Computed example of a mutant assay.
Amino acid sequence: MSLKNSVVARLRQVSGEWVPGLKESIGGRIDAVRARFDQLNRSLASKALPEGRRERVRDLVLEQKARVAGQKRK
């Protein structure tokens, strides 16, 4: 077996052992970062809308959901 073939075989073995664990570890961290950004985004959006506008947006969303639910029942 040539040096190149043995190095490639060893790299494949190591990557097969390490990559799944790394993906799982990094995936969990990415999910945590996404959750933090989502919280930050919601907080900023909440602070950006005046109270009266926020209530109107909430009412419009509820009306839209009610219409969609009514359409699905038919």
Rank of each mutant, 00 (worst) to 15 (best):
E24Q: 13
V68T: 15
R58P: 04
V57A: 13
L49R: 05
Q39S: 14
D38T: 14
E55S: 15
K65L: 14
V8D: 10
R36L: 02
A35W: 06
R29L: 09
K65A: 13
R34K: 15
E51Y: 01
S15E: 04
R53T: 13
K47S: 09
V14H: 08
V68S: 01
A69K: 03
L44Y: 06
L11V: 05
R34Y: 11
S2Y: 09
Q71F: 09
W18E: 15
L49M: 11
N41L: 15
E55C: 02
K72H: 10
V7N: 00
M1F: 10
A66N: 00
A32Q: 08
V19S: 11
L40Y: 08
L11M: 13
D59L: 14
S6N: 13
A66D: 06
Q71R: 15
S2H: 06
M1E: 08
V61D: 05
S15P: 01
K65P: 02
I26D: 00
R58Y: 08
L60F: 10
D38Y: 11
E55G: 08
M1G: 09
Q71H: 15
V33C: 00
G70I: 02
R12Y: 02
G21V: 00
A69P: 08
K65V: 07
D59C: 04
R53D: 13
A69H: 00
S46I: 01
V8G: 06
G16K: 06
L40D: 00
D31L: 14
R42L: 04
V19C: 07
A48L: 04
K4Q: 06
L49W: 07
V19I: 14
E55W: 09
K23H: 01
R58I: 15
R34F: 11
Q64A: 08
N41W: 13
D59H: 11
R73Q: 12
E63Q: 12
E17G: 03
L11D: 00
V61N: 03
E51H: 04
L44F: 06
V68D: 04
R12I: 08
P20G: 00
L44W: 15
R54S: 11
K65T: 07
R73P: 00
E24I: 13
L22Y: 03
K65M: 09
I26C: 03
K65C: 07
L44R: 08
V19R: 14
V68L: 14
K65Y: 06
R34N: 10
S2W: 02
S6A: 11
W18I: 15
R58L: 06
E63S: 06
Q64S: 11
A69Q: 10
L62C: 00
L62Q: 10
L40H: 02
P20L: 02
M1Y: 12
K4M: 10
Q13C: 01
L49V: 09
A48E: 08
R10I: 12
S6W: 03
E51A: 13
G28I: 03
L49F: 09
G70Y: 12
D38K: 13
K72W: 12
G27C: 02
G28M: 04
P20H: 01
A66M: 03
E24N: 03
